[in-house]
Amino acid sequence: MDRETEYNTELTKIYHTNYVRNSRAICVLWGIFTVCYAILNIVCFIQPQWIGDTGAGAAGFFGLYRYCLLSNNNEFSCQGDFFDSNKYLNKSFHAAAVLVGLSALLFLICCLCLLLFLFLNTATTLRICAWIQTLAAIFMFLGCVIFPNGWDNDIITGVCGNNNRIYDMGYCGIRWAYILAIVLIFDAAILAILAFVLAAKQAKLLPEVYKKLEKCKYEISL
């Protein structure tokens, strides 16, 4: 009986050690992906390569708050300032820039929240980050949806042709920054779901392991 109880105790300890090691490894990967996402979100936010010409009209490309047009000396001249509302092409671009900017800011806050692992339990920290990432995914989605609402601007018409209108870019095409923004919507949602799952596992399985340890210790004492 004693040998069997001792075996169960050791087995439970091994199970607990392996669980904690695997859980920490997944949390570390999740944290790395969160930091990478924040960097990509910032790149997507500041790049003006959301839509641009395809060679059919004038040369130029447009972002959330900056746009670049080909000048007379065959060089691109860029204009736009995120903090100056008068330099936005229209209100739709302004709203999209604010939403995508908030998404980037939320993920930066989420990166800072990783420090909470030092002060709070893992499950609580993961839940906080999961809700932040969920909100960031919603903001990114809204920004990508609202952005095409401003494609009927006169300056965009000069590059994309006279047949462009809301949600129709005419002769222009989607550039890599807009594609990246769409991909980041799903990435943020996946990171949030993973954080919720990890938090649930932390809250559910660890107490069961401790119960098994306590049960084995009680049997040993008898």
Rank of each mutant, 00 (worst) to 15 (best):
L64I: 02
I146F: 00
Y37W: 12
N86F: 07
A181S: 09
C78H: 02
K87V: 05
N149D: 15
L213Q: 09
I220A: 14
H94E: 15
L180D: 07
I185T: 02
G60L: 01
P148N: 01
L118I: 11
T9N: 14
K215I: 11
A137Q: 02
I26T: 09
N164L: 09
G55W: 03
I32P: 03
P148H: 04
L120H: 08
T17I: 04
G63S: 02
N86D: 10
Y19M: 05
L142I: 08
Y167D: 10
V145N: 08
L184C: 02
L108M: 14
P207G: 04
I39M: 06
L126D: 03
N22Y: 14
I155G: 06
A192N: 00
A59T: 06
I185F: 07
P207D: 01
I32Q: 07
D81S: 14
F186S: 08
L142R: 02
T125Y: 07
A189C: 03
L11M: 12
V145P: 07
S92L: 13
W50R: 02
K217P: 03
Q79K: 13
T17W: 07
E75F: 13
I51K: 08
N153D: 14
I46S: 09
C68I: 06
F117T: 04
G150Q: 00
V209Q: 12
V197Y: 00
L184E: 10
V98A: 04
A203G: 07
C216M: 11
C216R: 05
K211I: 03
N8F: 10
A188E: 00
G60Y: 02
M1C: 10
G158C: 06
L64R: 00
F117A: 01
Y7M: 12
R66I: 12
I146Y: 01
T134Q: 10
C111K: 01
D187M: 15
V35H: 05
T34N: 10
N121Y: 07
W131V: 15
A189P: 00
